[in-house]
Nucleic acid binder design. Structure first.
Lengths: 287, 287
DNA sequence: CCGTATTACGCTAGCCGTAATGATG
DNA sequence: CATCATTACGGCTAGCGTAATACGG
């Protein structure tokens, strides 16, 4: 049985060539290494080094041993990595969302429900990325804007979906805007406009770009900066009913509802069917 | 850094379930194991066990860790195996031969030339098995009955072949045999005979079976027993000029040369081209 | 109670670092 | 003589085993 520290030293010797260099790299002493390499040869009963009085070098078998040592160390490090990763996952509740608003609601609920655990959330622009994350265990839960109905070959549901909050998109227009007096508009009415938009709003971003022809989108990822620019200019921008509760809409703008069905959204919390019962407490937290 | 003995103990715990059982299997004490498992958790900073006061069991992450431990141990054992195997190979000169006679000559030469090394020789019936052994490193050298001319895609010779001894086959006939008075015969003349034959004579065995139609071969693998039976019966059998030097032919038999070219053999020592220079001393040992 | 895990405690084998030695270019 | 490996030596710690403790079926 070869102890790990010796395997590490052997691999390091193959890399750094001299004991003194290895001693520096591994923060130990030349004599310690000299002894360890002798001990290694003794345990194996095999000569691994060409030695002259003040020079040591791996021989052919020593090189072979060092390559194997590297393999052992890789397995060793992978073991540590995997265990720590598994533990980290066990200690964090991780979910992904297609839009920011559900995260504002869900994270406080989860933090309260799973006390002592870290709650981690990701915003993703596509459903596919979220489903993939749910499948590979990255997410315990995902938030989509539709229930997920996929079934296996026997017709059994693979996922459990639970309605969560609704969210509705509005457009913010300057008072002087040609559409400012409308009761409601369609996204297509904004064709050709210059529009200020936050680029970290999940699926909203794609929907808006898709449904408004020929618009120029001025992107901004800093929320506070975005609000300042909205206030200071006559540019068109967006808000939702949920974001309106979080922060007051800027003065001097008209808030006009949008008629498109795609931006009047019911969100759903989705988890794997077999884990649904683990989340009963969570799913009964809103009703 | 997790020392090997702890990894071994973790893997053993997964297998044997209780510390006391592991203590027996690994020839150590319960307390030593208890401490080591605590130390392991401490180093990883991860809880690996479900504990009650007098019971310990791997939890989910512990099981994961144990599976990885098994992988590390496999790599570890493979390292030791490979190094010892490489060392064993380095200490033995191994060659294969298509027939026994070259071995009688070659082994003494090699033993003398490579003093301190073990000389190991295999008798093989087919050229293919020998060439394969030369390619995969099992043999440093092989003895065939022809030079090996194979070349790589650039027309460079892959092998170096050096003529070795010659050997010629004779048939031993009882004085009363119908062919006993012939000066020489062909193998085909023995068609239909009952023939006593040693089955560990490499390629001779196949050649004889092939060239003598309808003969009945009585096989014997013990050389001394074979000689006794030859002496005591009127069966046909074989010898060669080289085997005749090793031991006197039995009395009461006629020794008749065989004319077939295939049993009048020039042997060749063959090694990989790139190793030919390692064997210059050997190849100049006969000339 | 017997089997099991853990804690307590003293021992010591083994590993370490410093210093000395020897060789080499 | 600067650099490197090895040997010598004393110190110390980490792991050991025994014994004691505690719990559970």
């Amino acid at each position: 049985m070869i102890e790990t520290y010796i395997i590490e030293q052997l691999a390091a010797l193959a890399e750094y060539k001299t004991l003194s260099r290895v001693a520096e790299e591994l923060h130990t002493s030349q004599p310690a290494l000299s002894r360890a390499m002798q001990k290694l040869e003794g345990e194996l009963g095999v000569t691994l080094f060409d030695r002259s009085k003040n020079r040591i070098a791996l021989n052919e078998i020593g090189e072979l041993a060092a390559r194997h040592a590297q393999i052992v160390l890789s397995a060793h490090n992978e073991m540590i990595r995997a265990v720590k990763e598994a533990d980290r996952r066990r200690r964090t509740f991780s979910y992904g969302s297609i839009a920011p608003a559900p995260m504002w609601e869900l994270t406080p609920i989860l933090s309260h429900l799973y006390m002592g655990m870290t709650v981690s959330s990701d915003l993703q622009e596509t459903e596919d990325a979220l489903i993939k994350g749910l499948e590979n265990g990255t997410y315990n839960l995902i938030v989509l804007f539709r229930p997920l109905e996929k079934r296996d070959e026997n017709g059994n549901a693979l996922y459990f979906s639970k309605p969560f909050i609704r969210e509705k998109l509005f457009v913010l227009l300057p008072l002087s805007h040609r559409l400012a007096s409308q009761k409601a508009i369609n996204l297509s009415d904004l064709a050709g406009e210059k529009i200020l938009i936050h680029n970290k709003i999940g699926f909203w971003y794609g929907i808006c770009k898709e449904k408004i022809p020929n618009a120029t989108f001025l992107e901004q990822s800093e929320l506070s900066a975005l609000r300042e620019i909205v206030s200071a200019t006559d540019l068109v921008s967006f808000m939702t009913d949920v974001s309106g509760q979080k922060m007051p809409p800027p003065k001097g703008k008209v808030i006009v509802p949008i008629l498109d069905e795609e931006v009047n959204v019911q969100f759903y919390c989705v988890c794997k069917k077999e884990r649904a019962q683990d989340f009963t407490a969570l799913f009964s937290a809103w009703c």
